[in-house]
Design a protein around this nucleic acid. Sequence first.
RNA 1: GCCCAUGUAGCUCAGUCGGUAGAGCGCUUCCUUGGUAAGGAAGAGGUUCACCAGUUCGAUUCUGGUCAUGGGCUCCA
Length: 636
Amino acid sequence: MITITFPDNSIKQFEDIPTGMDVAKSISEGFARNCVAMKINDQFQDLSRPIQSDAAIEFLTVNDDNALEVLRHSAAHVMAEAVLNLYPEAKLTIGPVVEDGFYYDIDMPPISEDDLSKIEAEIQKIIKAKNTFERKVVSKDEALEIFRDNPFKCELINELSDQDISLYRNGAFIDLCRGPHIPHTGMIKGIKLMKISGAYWRADPSREQLQRLYGTAFFDKKKLNQYLHLIEEAKKRDHRKLGTRLDLYSFHDEAPGMAFFHAKGMDMWNALLDYWRQTHRAAGYVETKTPVILNRKLWEKSGHWDNYRENMYTCIIDDEEYAIKPMNCPGGMILFKTRSYSYRDLPLRAGEVGLVHRHELSGALSGLFRVRSFHQDDAHIFMTPDQIESEVLGVLRLSEQIYQKFGLTFHLELSTRPEKSIGTDAQWEQATAGLEKALKTYGQDYIINEGDGAFYGPKIDIHIKDALGRTWQCGTVQLDMALPERFDLTYKGQDNDKHRPIMIHRVIYGSMERFFGILVEHFAGKFPLWLAPVQAVVLPITQDLADHADSVKKDLEAAGIRCEVDHRNETLKKKIREAQINYVPLILTIGEKEKETGTLSVRTLDGKVKMGLSMADFTTPVQRHIKERILDDIVL
RNA sequence: GCCCAUGUAGCUCAGUCGGUAGAGCGCUUCCUUGGUAAGGAAGAGGUUCACCAGUUCGAUUCUGGUCAUGGGCUCCA
């Protein structure tokens, strides 16, 4: 008699030893069809496994995130089988599940993207066959015998302990695998091979070069199509392409990894920065600025020379060695030490939009997302230990306020003390407790990354989510117990003694450049009015209205609206179309009627046209919309 | 940094099995003076095909190197 306990604590008893599938079917046939795997006493297993003794069971159904991993792992097997059918000489290595799908590294001659469809066709055959996955446990010797032709698998097997070597067979295909797997290949309803790339065995360049085949899989075709659509959508929004088309920024061989911002890009940049300054001043920040090139001695003192040297640009000036700053904090330390502080002066919130340079690997560069030169919307907060909670809370609330303006939601992650760290247990406890208290007061759920903090203190990372559902770590709040020590920062306490301040490093945009790129993709180039590089375009219908168009432009600029005139000798239709595809929020057409009556006709991006507006009728709501930085489209 | 691919007009790209280059968009001019998502015509534009060598009578095309861009290189059966 086997007793099975379900998650709701209900109990079912079985005369004979049941498999997971038997238990699922005892609930209902329909439920069993949607089951992918099970968790027995907190361990993932195949449904085909017999349950030998009393156990707590939890089923993974097709709607479960973990189930998707199981499916993709099985899909990797199916892909591997297909490759072996087509390329019998190929040697399989490893095939794990990754964030958006799976891959398999295979030792085989290079193939091209064109070959993928051939492999996909083979995969479909295997799926149609609805082959079951069968698990078999073997000894190490048996395993080595089975895979004797495959040195990679043998290498893996030799690293395993004798006990847990399991094989999975589906059809004629056998692979070394921990499992679990889906019941049969027919459950893979949507599968697509994405790309091929090179990879090294064990990520070691001195070892064999393998072909890595990427794919993704879903339980239904619709989900797959949604995913493919998302990728298409992301491609269309690629900030590198949009930046060129909208004339915002560019990259050049003369400065790899460093963006050139064009006039329109700078208009947006300044709009972002104006907003930043306004919110920060209101939140009690002052703004500071420190030099870009600083003497080596400073970097030795801060610890960067020892820990960050390979990413720093250096130069020699008057026989002295200097480094271009990769971070703003050491300069901020010098700034702090220019005067003395009383406890009454704290917290001191010193912002700095600092230009930093980091020598990233050339292969890692990517548009505005990964650059070598960027601006951090940095701030250093110096405070007493009992101010940790309120200051961190303040940063979280300020972040929320700022992200909200862009329609970005976010989640929080707390990283705690790593193995290698400085400071005393008491300091870490106080710091971490301060962060946790702030998070609790803030009230939003957060993820804990145990041991993921910096060596000098715990931190909270803020991950924003864009319009396509992609997440980006932008904001971070890091407690630092090291730098105040290294630089011997002090303030005078109520007790007339010297005390060590605690310091926060924090950014909200993170890298201005990267955040800019994220916004371009988030909005797909269709920016809210307050951010739009060109807020209004004036279109004279005929060329003799050019002068009047210019005077309208002047008036609009005087009202603080970024404006252009399209003077080309083209039809109105054409000018409108181009303004529309460049997402200019306000399109003003100027004809005889407007000139005579001194009115404006305004077309918004929704295609609606409002005629006969006076200049004030137009500028008043537009100015308000810009000033309040309203996310939604303006309605006139 | 490493692997693979790519680098041709401002943009997107075609082409030359080695004989000094083309399209569309954009730009200029002209015709049209047009009222809400692409009117028509002509023309200019490449220090000659990222850069540097080599092979060759001759290289943008072949070879080697350099630089840049893109994808991947962390997610361990």
